[in-house]
């Protein structure tokens, strides 16, 4: 079963994303900010990260930059999710190492089709 790390400081958002993914047959784990996410990413295998931008202690950009600099995990794909639709944030997200970008609030079908795409499972 593919394992997905859902990173967001809002408990409801984590639960929402996890529910969608679990119903579609994925296994999920959660992290509350970039530091906790990095600790989990370094000790558990994940096939995909779903990352919020604004979080305390370490934001989504900081997390992705760390991930992309660590040789064991730098190939793991990431979807960045944020409330901000400004184009600048998308640019920053991609330059930090995101593979795809979604604007909140996320629709279940979008999350699933992006997930399948990045996991190479077809749309």
């Amino acid at each position: 079963m593919k394992n997905i790390l859902v990173i967001d400081d809002a408990a409801t958002v984590r639960m929402y994303h996890c529910n969608i993914l679990i119903e579609a047959g994925y296994h999920t784990e959660e992290a509350i900010n970039g530091i906790e996410a990095l600790e989990k990413a370094l000790t558990t295998h994940f096939d995909l990260y779903i990352v919020d931008i604004n979080m305390p202690k370490m934001d989504g950009y900081g997390f992705l930059k760390e991930v992309r600099s660590q040789k064991d995990i730098n190939q793991v794909p990431a979807i960045m999710v944020s409330t901000e639709s400004a184009s600048n944030d998308q640019v920053l997200a991609y330059s930090a190492g995101a593979n795809l970008y979604l604007v909140k609030p996320v629709r279940p079908n979008d999350l699933l089709s992006y997930t399948r795409l990045l996991l190479g499972e077809g749309a």
Binding site: I32, I35, E39, L42, T43
Partner: peptide
């Protein structure tokens, strides 16, 4: 305990035995 609840001053370092 985790630095994720404490501070952003430090870098997470993974060693085989521990974070």
């Amino acid at each position: 305990e985790s630095m994720s609840r404490i501070s952003s001053l430090f870098k997470v370092q993974k060693f085989p035995e521990a974070i």
